[in-house]
Amino acid sequence: MTWSRQRLRERDALIAEQSAARRASPRDALDVLLDELREQHETERHRRTSQVRQMSELVSRSLAEQGPVSTVKWLAGQALRRCGVRR
């Protein structure tokens, strides 16, 4: 059987149908497990991104309201606290 535009279209539709059937069937246990791990990573990344954004907003506000010297002092205090040093 020779190939034709019509036969290409039929084959294209068949591949799409097979894809839909695969998506409708139950998922492999491994895929489920690995997706859970990816989800955890995604959640953690979101948490860190929002922490960084929050910090960046705080620094901008402090620079505008307190000036650079106070901001640097405040940041140094934050870093020391994170290392367990209390003044």
Binding site: W3, L8, R9, E10, R11, D12, A13, L14, I15, Q18, S19, R22
Partner: peptide, 26 residues
Amino acid sequence: LAVGGVCEVLPGPAAEVDLSLKLRAV
């Protein structure tokens, strides 16, 4: 040929991506 060439029912850029997805699907 086995994946039906480039899809003619999807809009242009989507048809390009679709060919990659079809080849991966097989």
